[in-house]
């Protein structure tokens, strides 16, 4: 077993293209997941009861089942109910909805964790409901949930690898295909592991740097 660098160099354009797909889907799902997750958390926190219950059920189901099953349902089951998607949009949609479920739980816990006294103090000085949400709850919550959000971002990078199973041309699909064509499976998988590991470490590092920068806003 020897690592043939020439194989990697020759396939570099393909590898970079795969990486680009991984990064693109990751960042898009992250943004969509955060936006959708925040909306769900806000609706569950402030919205009418029955809606909250329905959303809770949906979140429970999404968090209680494997992502692989969800993506199979969407990609293979979708056409039977008129949802016919190519691998990339299917992967992006599936990953975003999956992420939204987890983000909504993070935000919901964040809303609850903001001390009641801070809200009461805002009520006393006459802030409106909307102002309290915008000026007090959201900024305080952001500080509280930042570490979990970074954690979730890391989980999402790793979940993108699963999309290779429905033939999304991302890094895992491209590099393992390369490996089997060249009979260099172990080498290419090590390369792949290294790429993810660097991505995850970089993400964790960036998250910690952001936390440090925001730490001065942290309440005692």
């Amino acid at each position: 077993m020897s690592f043939d660098l020439a194989v990697v160099v020759a396939a570099l354009p393909a590898i970079l293209a795969g990486l680009q797909v991984t990064l693109g889907i990751w960042l898009a799902a992250l943004a969509l997941g955060i936006g959708l997750g925040f909306a769900v958390a806000a609706l569950r926190h402030f919205g009418p009861g029955p809606l909250g219950l329905a959303l809770r059920l949906a979140v429970e189901v999404l968090r209680g089942t494997p992502f692989l099953i969800q993506i199979f349902l969407l990609y293979f089951g979708g056409p039977f109910v008129g949802i016919r998607l190519d691998p990339v949009p299917a992967g992006l949609l599936g990953l975003s909805v999956y992420a939204a479920a987890y983000f909504s739980e993070i935000f919901r816990a964040g809303f609850v964790a903001v001390p009641r006294g801070h809200v009461e103090a805002a009520q006393c000085v006459g802030l409106s409901r909307a102002q309290i949400v915008r000026r007090i709850l959201v900024p305080e919550m952001t500080m509280l949930v930042l570490p979990q959000c970074v954690n979730m971002a890391v989980i999402l990078v790793k979940e993108t690898a699963i999309l290779s199973i429905i033939a999304v041309p991302e890094a895992t699909a491209v590099i393992s295909a390369l490996g089997s064509q060249q009979y260099a499976f172990v080498e290419s998988l090590f390369l792949l592991a290294l790429i993810y590991w660097l991505l995850v470490e970089a993400c964790g590092w960036a998250g910690r740097a952001l936390e440090r920068r925001l730490s001065k806003f942290r309440f005692a």
Binding site: K158, T160, A161, I165, F185, L189, A193, Y196
Partner: peptide
């Protein structure tokens, strides 16, 4: 800890599945 938490499980499984016979 850093490796097994930083690499997707799918990649770990593929690696082990292919590495064991290779050695």
């Amino acid at each position: 800890v850093s490796f097994f938490r930083g690499v997707p499980l799918l990649v770990q499984l593929l690696l082990i599945y292919n590495l064991l016979p290779a050695v």
